[in-house]
C-alpha cells in the first residue's frame, strides 16, 4: 500500500474524483462573492459526496440490486449485486440537499429583492 504507487493512485480514481470535486466546491464557497455561487460550490461538494458513496457500494461485476421478474427467493444461483445501502442513503441525502438548495435559492431571491445585490461582502457589512 505505497501511496506513490501509480497503480494505487489509478486504482482509486473514484476517490480522486471525489477529492478534486470537493476541493473545487470548497474553493467556490470561499473565493466567490456571489451568494448563489457560494451555494453552488456547496452543491458541488454534495455531489462529490454522492459520487463517493455510490462508488463505495459498487461491486466489480455486480448487477443492479433490483429484484428482477422471475427470480425466486432464495435465488437459484448466487447473484453478485452491488450494495444497495449507499445508494439508498444517497437518495435520502439528495432529498435533503434539494431542500437546502430550494431554501437557499428562495432566501437569495428575497435578499436580492430587498438589497438589489448578491455580493456577499457588501451584504455582510449590513448584518
Amino acid at each position: 500500500m505505497n501511496i506513490i504507487d501509480p497503480g494505487f493512485i489509478l486504482g482509486h480514481y473514484n476517490y480522486w474524483v471525489a477529492i478534486i470535486l470537493i476541493m473545487i466546491g470548497l474553493y467556490t464557497m470561499i473565493a466567490k462573492r456571489n451568494l448563489i455561487k457560494k451555494f453552488i460550490g456547496l452543491n458541488i461538494i454534495e455531489t462529490a459526496i454522492f459520487l463517493f458513496y455510490i462508488s463505495l457500494g459498487d461491486v466489480t461485476g455486480g448487477i443492479a440490486p433490483i429484484f428482477a421478474e422471475g427470480s425466486t427467493n432464495p435465488p437459484d444461483a448466487v447473484i453478485l449485486y452491488a450494495n444497495p445501502l449507499p445508494s439508498a442513503m444517497m437518495l435520502t441525502a439528495i432529498v435533503v440537499t434539494l431542500c437546502m438548495t430550494a431554501l437557499a435559492l428562495s432566501f437569495a431571491v428575497l435578499i436580492y429583492r430587498r438589497y438589489k445585490t448578491l455580493d456577499a461582502r457588501r451584504l455582510m457589512e449590513l448584518l
Binding site: M29, L42, I49, F107, L127
Partner: peptide, 26 residues
C-alpha cells in the same frame, strides 16, 4: 433583510458542517 442574511449565513456554514458529517459517516 437582516433575518434573511443571518439565515443565509447560518445556512452556508451549517450545510458545510453537514457535508463534513456526511463524509465522516462515509
Amino acid at each position: 433583510g437582516r433575518g434573511l442574511l443571518a439565515g443565509y449565513k447560518y445556512l452556508l456554514i451549517g450545510s458545510a458542517g453537514s457535508a463534513m458529517i456526511l463524509i465522516g459517516i462515509g
